[in-house]
């Protein structure tokens, strides 16, 4: 039920992959002497280096000795380091549970704050009382007006799962809705199955 950064990963992998691919294609076309021919054929005037010319021009040393460039190298390093670190930290799955709900946000009448884990503890205990449920864990996200519940129930492989899901909605979720005095914006239930232990009993007749 923890949230992962799938979309972020795909987007950045695509961007970096595309940049590498385009850069590699351009460099390969220059190396093979094809880019100049293509540009001439299309009719575009490009300053394409010849295959016999050096990759590093003669002015590179002077360019990198400029103080601005030295600082720019460091700045680029900081930016890349922050991006890399942020991307690595984004790989950690997060629960992203809701902040404490403000159930009565009126300064004149006082403020009632309810932590989300108080409610999820009750939901878990409620769900575990249902027939066939071995374990339950819940996460509340969103706000007090638009709460979202993610619930994971671990059930025996002999459990009647359809009946269990109906009971979850009709009893467990309904009680949460009553307590919060607002319908859920989204309900997500993940059913996990645990294999029941097979025991062998012998009866002598």
């Amino acid at each position: 039920m923890r949230q992962r950064s799938g979309l972020l990963n795909r987007a950045w992998l695509a961007v970096i992959g595309l940049l590498l691919l385009l850069g590699g294609i351009v460099a390969a076309l220059i190396a093979l002497g094809l880019l100049a021919r293509i540009a001439t054929t299309i009719g575009i005037r490009l300053g394409v280096p010849a295959t016999s010319s050096k990759v590093l021009g003669s002015g590179v040393d002077a360019f990198f000795d400029r103080p601005v460039v030295v600082v720019a190298v460091g700045l680029l390093g900081v930016i890349l380091g922050v991006i890399g670190l942020a991307w690595l930290l984004a790989q950690i799955p997060r629960t992203n549970a809701a902040k404490p709900f403000r159930l009565q946000d009126d300064a004149a009448r006082g403020l009632t704050i309810c932590r989300a884990d108080v409610l999820t503890d009750a939901v878990e205990a409620d769900a575990e009382r249902l027939l066939g449920v071995a374990d339950a864990s819940a996460v509340l996200r969103g706000t007090a007006l638009q709460p979202e519940l993610a619930l994971k129930v671990t059930v025996s492989d002999r459990a009647d799962i359809q009946r269990l899901l109906h009971s979850l909605q009709a009893e467990t979720v309904a009680r949460l809705v009553t307590v919060m005095d607002t319908p859920l914006k989204h309900l997500a239930v993940q059913v996990d199955v645990t294999t029941s232990r097979h025991t062998a009993d012998q009866i002598t007749v």
Partner: peptide, 8 residues
């Protein structure tokens, strides 16, 4: 009980 549901 909810605006949208997802069971998996």
């Amino acid at each position: 009980a909810a605006g949208s549901t997802e069971f998996v």
